[in-house]
Amino acid sequence: MTHLPYSGIWPVAPTPFNDDGTVDLPGMKRVLDCMIDQGVDGICILANFSEQFLISDAEREALMRLSLDHVAGRVPVIVTISHYATAIVVERARLAKDLGADIVMLMPPYHGALLKGTPEQTFEQFAAVGQVGIPIMLQDAPLSGVDLPVSLLVKMAREIEMLKLFKIECPQAAAKLRSLIAEGGDAIEGPFDGEEAITLLADLDAGATGTMTSALIPDLIGPIVTDFLAGNRQAAIDGYGRVLPVVNHENRQCGFRAAKAAMVEGGVIASDFCRHPIPPLHPDTRGLLLDLMRPLDPIVLSWGK
């Protein structure tokens, strides 16, 4: 879709479960096929929107192997490898590289509210992953609670050769992206935004070249990025205006449950089950999501029918 090496739309694949809570491996293949048919530039697996915090180590390895084998190079795949322990992060990076992943993504080291990596420890963990020899995307998300000042990110970008991409989804993401690009220059090869594209236009204005959304409507958000990067600013603004009600409802009301609900509606997967303690979507919240989506006719609502 786009001409830059790290650009476009690289959504997170949801992890489907059966109604009994077991991982739906055939459904995972259908999720990936649907996303490729949505025209994505890449796919991220095992991320927060994949419910990585609700799956076991054995399940994450099985999902990684299945996903990389099934995508089979049709689009690049990012594997999320976040963990507090640097040795585990490095082990996950090595396995992802050995299995054919294109990029790994991780947050800074944290575990709960009180165990957070210092700037030095964050640098050391990313440097250790860099030694594995696979491109890295740094995820700057509020979930970690770790402060990542622009000066630290620029130092990491300049001194860790494999750190190529930065997914910025903290408050005031556009301001941080603008500063990061201005101070980091060519070392910032892939400035991305996230958070379901709720701040996409501001982030593109600030210099973002890509976005990591959910798998809900990437076929509708991707063209916005393409138009903007091609200089078709008004087309991008108009496109964003059309999808914003859906993006807002997903971001503020549904979270990662939105993509799974839509995929059930469209016959992609059989169940939108979420493991405890995640509650199911309220029927009214789900109903409004689908009501907002139907006039836009996204691929997800008809893919499996």
Rank of each mutant, 00 (worst) to 15 (best):
A258S: 14
L152M: 04
V154E: 10
V264D: 03
A141T: 13
D37V: 13
A259Q: 14
A262F: 06
M64A: 09
R286S: 02
Q139R: 07
V146T: 04
F53C: 09
N48R: 07
I9R: 02
V132M: 08
A202D: 15
I299N: 01
D147A: 10
L163N: 01
K164I: 10
R233Q: 05
T209C: 09
A113W: 13
T15Q: 09
M1V: 11
D284F: 12
Q234M: 13
G133D: 07
I103G: 02
G241C: 11
G255W: 03
I81M: 02
F123E: 03
L301N: 08
I269S: 14
L281W: 12
I43Q: 00
L143H: 11
D203P: 04
V71W: 08
V225G: 03
R65T: 15
R233S: 07
F126P: 04
M107P: 03
A72L: 12
L68Q: 10
G210L: 00
L163H: 10
L296N: 05
H111A: 10
I36Y: 01
P277D: 08
R65N: 11
Q139A: 14
L200C: 06
L63Y: 04
G130R: 03
R275P: 11
S56M: 02
E183R: 04
V77S: 02
L281Q: 06
I55M: 10
L32M: 05
D140A: 09
R294C: 00
G287D: 12
L163V: 07
A270W: 03
D297A: 11
E183V: 12
I299F: 02
I160C: 09
L143P: 05
P280G: 00
P16S: 14
T122Y: 09
G239F: 03
A87H: 11
R233K: 12
D57G: 12
L153R: 08
K164F: 15
I136S: 03
P76K: 06
P142M: 03
Q52H: 15
I136C: 03
E61K: 14
H282F: 12
L143W: 13
D24P: 01
T209A: 05
Q234G: 07
R30W: 01
T118P: 04
Y240D: 09
P109H: 12
I88A: 14
A175V: 08
L148V: 05
T213N: 05
C254H: 06
I103R: 05
I198F: 15
S56T: 14
C34M: 11
A128F: 13
A202N: 14
